[in-house]
Amino acid sequence: MNTIEVKNLNFYYGNFQALKDIGIAFQEKIITALIGPSGCGKSTLLRCLNRMNDLIEGVKISGEVDFKDKNIYSKNIDVVELRRHVGMVFQRPNPFPLSVFDNVVYGLKVHGVTQAFRLEEIVERSLKATGLWDEMKDKLNSIATELPLEQQQRLCMARLVAIEPEVILMDEPCSALDPIATAKIEELMFELKKKYTIVIVTHNMQQAARVSDCCGFMLLGELIEFGTTSKIFTSPDNQKTQDYITGRFG
């Protein structure tokens, strides 16, 4: 089943075309990786999936992005509701300067859940789901921005898990972390994939090879090749993909 399907997507920053006629499908409950050299449009594509690009002035977009068979760029779509279902984890961990507890319940409060007992229950469940509970259960009142980066990034995932989205978009979620923390986050991704559809942008080809099931290779705003990760990394159809994978450029 395709959770998100992108059709003929063109995207412009002013006059600069950052995405060229992209067509790609993200399947339910697997991890899809987007790889490619810097500036090829990976982040741009990812941010089209939950309409975060709407926040940038002067952008133009054409084509279709269907989330569960509904075009999210059609007129009657509620962006707030969309983002509740398609959450995002950023490159630099960006927990709010609030307590750990308040970070996790943020999304719930935003979406109108206020009963104390439910909040506590969900905080415990979300922190457990992201492997933070044991470390955090006595520190729920500490300020999130003072935690180690890895815990901050986990917390950012926990606050998404709390609102139970269907898709989690991750833009280079490990690039600010050391290798050990990266390994832990990757483990977490495997865990999360059981319940969520995950799209990850990464610079790190080993990471893409390790964690993803499907993989898309992008170059200069175009999707060059898309397929299962094993195929992309062992016998790609396109010569450019081959060159990138073997490290001849990028």
């Binding site: 939950n50 975060m52 926040l55 707030v80 509701e81 969309l82 983002r83 509740r84 959450g87 995002m88 950023f90 630099r92 960006n94 927990p95 709010f96 300067p97 609030l98 943020y106 999304g107 409060k109 935003v110 979406h111 950012c156 606050r159 998404l160 609102i163």
Partner: peptide, 25 residues
């Protein structure tokens, strides 16, 4: 900016983002 983006990406409205995150920060 990352605080605002984080909040909006959770489905918060602009006003929720302002009074729950920006003003606190």
């Amino acid at each position: 900016r990352s605080y605002r983006e984080g909040s909006l990406a959770m489905g918060a409205t602009k006003w929720q983002t302002i009074h729950m995150v920006v003003l606190k920060a």
